[in-house]
């Protein structure tokens, strides 16, 4: 990022992996990323460039923006996978559920029905919701384990078929996350008063 000869700041790379000097992969050494983030934050801080040329000052601003966006994207395993998938030319966050298994849709639908009942004060629904909440948390944990395995497999094999699987598991994960949030909102004591 800095010229090896004159030490001036060069235009920063917009590729997060390159920016942090990390190997492109789905599994990532989190403490190492954090270490580099702090180190780069110090080196690139715009305050250090106030007496430098205008061009270098601009690079430092650019670099700081990439630093923060990149850190946010890479430190979160889900955002990281989305970033890498996008780089590899996959459609990510596409708002159609083609990869969602029908059983999951059915389950999501039923749970939403239960949430609606609870909203209308049905106490029977509360037990159903609590049970569903536990089930969805367990589902989320299982998905995270599955992702972890897939991440390692991709890093080992660089097989695009694995990325395809990652993409579909991520879609599933989003649904489950939304459900967990939705149920938490309903179960919160400050929500609807018990009838």
């Amino acid at each position: 990022m800095f010229c090896v000869h004159c030490g001036t700041l060069q235009p920063p790379s917009a590729d997060y992996y390159q920016f942090f000097g990390l190997k492109r992969g789905l599994a990532l050494d989190a403490p190492e990323l954090q270490r580099r983030f702090y180190e780069l934050s110090r080196k690139l801080h715009p305050d250090r460039f106030t007496r430098k040329a205008a061009r270098e000052q601009q690079y430092s601003l650019d670099a700081t923006a990439i630093l923060n966006d990149g850190y946010r994207a890479l430190r979160d395993p889900l955002a990281r996978a989305e970033y890498l998938l996008k780089q590899e030319g996959f459609d990510v966050g596409e708002q159609r559920g083609k990869d969602v298994p029908p059983e999951l849709l059915e389950e999501v639908f039923e749970l939403n029905m239960a949430i609606e009942e609870l909203r209308h004060g049905g106490e029977d629904a509360r037990g159903q919701l609590e049970e569903a909440y536990g089930r969805f948390l367990a589902m989320r944990d299982a998905i995270d384990k599955e992702l972890d395995t897939l991440y390692r497999r991709f890093d080992d094999t660089r097989d695009r078929a694995v990325l395809q699987q990652v993409r579909s598991v991520l879609n599933r994960r989003r649904y489950v996350r939304n459900l967990v949030n939705e149920v938490e909102k309903e179960l919160a004591p400050e929500g609807q008063p018990a009838q």
Binding site: V108, N171, R174
Partner: peptide, 13 residues
């Protein structure tokens, strides 16, 4: 027909 959009958490029957 049951469809959904995972991104927004929508389900439509």
């Amino acid at each position: 027909g049951m469809v959904g959009a995972p991104e927004c958490g929508d389900v439509m029957k």
